[in-house]
Amino acid sequence: MAEATLRVFRGDSNGGQTVDYRVPIAPGMVVLDALHHIQGHLAPDLAVRWNCKAGKCGSCSAEVNGRPRLTCKTRMDDLPQDQPITVLPMKSFPRIKDLVTDVSWNYRVNRKIPAFEPRPGTDWKISQLDVDRVQEFRKCIECFLCQDVCHVLREHDQKEKFGGPRFFVRIAGLEMHPLDGRNRNALLKDELGLGLCNITKCCTEVCPEEIRITDNAIIPLKERVVDEFYDPLTRMFRRIRGK
């Protein structure tokens, strides 16, 4: 049977190193299967998060051969087999153990975002077109791969000033909800540091849900913020129209 070598980070917040494991390859196998093989046969205490094994829950994120990916959707046969496959934890978050990182910061950011609030007097009739428009943002599975890759967090560790692409996507989903009556522009500008994003599009490239984070969420939100804070005329016009 064919075999591959997985070079997996083993360690915790104090440090660690990569360890090589030989794993038998079956047809259609994904990196998460290989990690499970290691757990079941070679290293029972290898720490990995996962749930659905079908790209639906966003638990199994890691950096495979240097690229942030869902390990349950990364096929072994798509990776070069003649060299070790490296599997490292997401770099932007503090390490806990092996491939498991501390993503609690994301949950703290989320708490700052006011939830949906319907406009008064709505009759709950919505057109499918409006649903389709926001659907893209609501697909997010919170894998945090976009957060991992974004240089504002990864290289500059601006976690106190910057919400990160995941939460711009979330806010886009709320702001473009056809019946939402809230305004989150000040939050975007002041607390979540939307201005720090310089539109490199790295987040869009890694999103497993193929959300066009930069073009469809971030840029329109930037426009809204500009309209509100730097363009009084549009702002007045918006007020009159009721949004």
Partner: peptide
């Protein structure tokens, strides 16, 4: 009312699809 968005009918109501054992189109979905 808490913000979930379901697929819609022509009239703008929540769309429902057929499923096994259900006499009518009954499953609200996205």
């Amino acid at each position: 009312q808490w913000g979930a968005l379901f697929d819609r009918t022509e009239k703008g109501d929540i769309l429902q699809r057929a499923f096994g054992g259900h006499t009518f189109k009954r499953l609200c979905h996205v």
